[in-house]
Amino acid sequence: MAEPTTSGRPFDAEALPHLDALYRVALRLTGDPTQAEDLVQDTMLKAYRAWRQYRPGTNAKGWLLTILRNTFINDYRRRKLEPVATDLEAIEPHAIYRAVEDVDPEGAFFSKIVDEKVLEAIDALPPDFREVLVLSDMEGLRYGEIAEALKVPVGTVKSRLFRARRLLQASLYQYAVETGIIPPREAPHE
């Protein structure tokens, strides 16, 4: 492909390796494969046009995901009321660990749940929590990169991530109990 820019490596060499990540995040943000494809294409074209603004040596994946996320917010996100905040303060950090520590202390049940169910549970998270979890724990962006992409303080990224994980663990635990992957926690009386 032609060499489109002046800023170090050509666009295609830096950007194309991240198509998988862009598509994965687009899928989680839109919840729809067709929209996800359009979002990825729009993102790549915008990124190509803005390539001169990319600072060589910084994380190209983070830069591309920022463009993808902004494009999603501006052009794709359907206007809807944010879901009512769950009472997350009540969730203890170890809540799920405590529930499984006798039967599955290493959390092996997580790996026994099929991809489809894990992704469904992620998609069911409140959007603000979902995007942080996807960017951090699935795509490996650092707190600072996520904060920059979302234009929120690092502390906000951390607290959303903490809550996202608690919610997701609780939801996967519930699924694992319902499907018999792990036995339910014994009731205190018989």
Partner: peptide, 12 residues
């Protein structure tokens, strides 16, 4: 587990 799930899905 989360990291591994990401690897199972890529750009068509």
């Amino acid at each position: 587990m989360l990291e591994a799930r990401a690897g199972h899905c890529g750009c068509p």
